[in-house]
Design a protein around this nucleic acid. Structure first.
Lengths: 145, 145
DNA sequence: ATTCGTCGGTCAATCTCGTCCAGCATCACG
DNA sequence: CGTGATGCTGGACGAGATTGACCGACGAAT
């Protein structure tokens, strides 16, 4: 699926998606047209889904992170899903199997704001909240086959 | 903290971190030296923590995603933390308050692989696994103040 | 009120980089 | 063999980044 050079390219970009093609090319051991071509093909194939940024929540005024598990009351599933999507402090959410229907991560300014958000959800679902104390594994790439 | 233009710049980069400075500048309504300057300052301040890529797990041969909650047995906390960090299929993990000590997300090729990974963890911790069925909120930026 | 310093910005010149093109090596196949 | 597809390189040219000189708005001190 991916050869050694593709993996190399993805690793380099994961560390810094804004490297110039020239630098990317030399680190991957090819010329820049080839590197550009590889890059284009990875995007076309959909393997590489996009280029984005990582922010520092602290520096943005979000010193608190939490993970909430959400179990909607009967009949409320779609309403709760909509509510989650419409809560901008929720930065990611998965719908999962098991008793808890959703698992979401959110950034907040303080406990009061967390409380406000949870109150709003609690009208339509049971929630279970965990405060993030640290992040032993920061977002990283899975092994590339 | 951040003014309107900074927010604009971050939004643009979140959508495509590889835009040229020229394009970034015009979309943000300034000249390219100014845009470069803003960008440099955002990095220096640490607000902008880096540029990275988004991959498509499917296309990489990881059709299955799971979220696991991990409660180490007494005395095993550090060993379990190490184990999690050394499991490359785990792409992110938070240490949280509450009964569950860790919440981790992982990408796997199939159920067999998930089982293997869980077996290894289960020697040292209680685990609770949820399979991801869909992702109502894909990774996004929190509101920028 | 004037002056001075600073901050954030523009413009223009230069230097770097990306992209396009032509051409070459390798390989699978009739 | 000859042919076509694939993946690469090097060079040329146009687009983009960077740098330095300059400009105007704003605040503080004289």
């Amino acid at each position: 699926m991916l050869d050694e050079i593709d993996r190399r390219i993805l690793d380099i970009l994961a560390a810094n998606a804004r490297v110039s093609l020239k630098e990317l090319a030399q680190e991957a051991g090819l010329s820049s047209p080839s590197a550009a071509d590889r890059l284009r093909k990875l995007e076309e194939r959909g393997v590489l889904d996009g280029f984005t940024i990582a922010l520092n929540p602290m520096k943005l005024g979000y010193p608190l992170q939490a993970v909430i598990r959400v179990r909607p009351m009967p009949g409320m599933l779609h309403i709760v899903e909509r509510l989650i999507q419409d809560t901008p402090e929720i930065v990611e959410c998965d719908k999962v199997t098991g008793d808890d229907c959703f698992i979401a991560k959110l950034f907040v300014r303080d406990m009061a704001q967390l409380d406000t958000i949870l109150d709003r959800i609690a009208e339509k679902a049971q929630t279970n909240t965990s405060i993030v104390k640290s992040t032993p594994v920061k977002r990283r790439l899975p092994p590339l086959l």
